[in-house]
Nucleic acid binder design. Sequence first.
DNA 1: GCCAACGTTGGC
DNA 2: GCCAACGTTGGC
Length: 155
Amino acid sequence: MRYWLMKSEPESFSIDDLKNCKNSTEHWDGIRNYQARNFMRDDMVIGDRVLFYHSNTDEPGVVGIAEVASEPYADYTAFDSGSKYYDRQSTKENPRWVMVDIRFVEKFDRTVTLKEMKSMYNLAGMKLLQRGNRLSIMPVGKNEFETIVSMSKEF
DNA sequence: GCCAACGTTGGC
DNA sequence: GCCAACGTTGGC
């Protein structure tokens, strides 16, 4: 099993929104970055655990856990000329962008904030914390995943 | 709202 | 293939 971190702006799609989806599952559309796409396309496996991260908000941080719930498949928002994710170079015959389904697993009792994570010596290697990182999907180490989960249980 | 950092685009 | 211009991300 692999571990991931996926960012979402809570004003557009929060962990509560995910929980409230049908079957607490939603497709993760709109990824238009090749590195992030490649992670979904090449490395994600059903059942992989995902740290759900809220970005662009008052208190950025990890708010809970989700899991990968499908194989990768074509991101159909790229075919829709009315969508803000439309990409005329992505065709049904040869889709450029993919997505996976994500299922809610649990919401933390509290947010593990970016600030806290920065202060943890054993999280210093996290991609999330590297200078200038803007990836919205990134791999996370098992130890890092478990450290963050245990931080969520401490007050 | 600002701005640093980064990815993408396109002219050459 | 270089690189300037531009757009986006996301913390602050």
